[in-house]
Design a protein around this nucleic acid. Sequence first.
DNA 1: GCATTGTATGCCTATATCGGCATGTGCCAA
DNA 2: TTGGCACATGCCGATATAGGCATACAATGC
Lengths: 121, 121
Amino acid sequence: MARAATTADVFNAIAEAHRRDILDVLTRGEKAVGAIVDELAISQPRVSKHLRVLSEVGLVRCRAVGRRRLYRVDPARLRPLHDWVAKYELMWNERLDRRDDHLGDLQRERTESDQQPRGAS
Amino acid sequence: MARAATTADVFNAIAEAHRRDILDVLTRGEKAVGAIVDELAISQPRVSKHLRVLSEVGLVRCRAVGRRRLYRVDPARLRPLHDWVAKYELMWNERLDRRDDHLGDLQRERTESDQQPRGAS
DNA sequence: GCATTGTATGCCTATATCGGCATGTGCCAA
DNA sequence: TTGGCACATGCCGATATAGGCATACAATGC
């Protein structure tokens, strides 16, 4: 088996740095392919291909205007990612809080796993 | 060129669903490899390999206890991801706000890109 | 020392990616 | 209609992955 398809989900789609760059550019408003190409100094076919991936996972939407295609971000699609990370954000805030209280020694006071009897889902 | 290494950054590391599963399990506390294996019903070598990737990007830390290795999450490492998504969270909140105000017609009032003169970084 | 448990690694295959380059397709202009 | 601009696609090569299986390594217990 190989790596999961880039279009499998949002996580895979944004793994590629250039794809994130493109999204970031689109953050500043709807843009045509050519504009992205110029702004990022990436070849046009490359941009088009990345846009296709982003499009397939719904991260961008396209609108044709004349012979141009204007792409825009659909930020809501990043929600799964946001929600997933949120859990961990809680964790690191907790840790910082504890560190404030006890000045960071018992960093693992209760975290110590008691190696559950295997099978307890 | 192929896809970026899974160990290139946190984004690539968490692209793999099983890796996220492992992190989620570790969310509930430090766990030994065997515990993860049992909980996720994934082969041991697989788990070990995923842990290695997670380890290389700093998402988990390891501590040897006897012949066991206890892994724990280092949630702070997800910060880049969190920060990146945060921008988009703002965006979708804005949109919802606007929708509240104007009942969603002028969804693109100002978003309209004015196709900057090409070259303006 | 020796057998056993708990993990990490190595090797191999199938698969899919990213990027380059050339070319197809669609729309506009003269 | 012909030319040309804006994008999308197709094909190719190099690369690296995920997972299976067997095995090496480490620590423990007898």
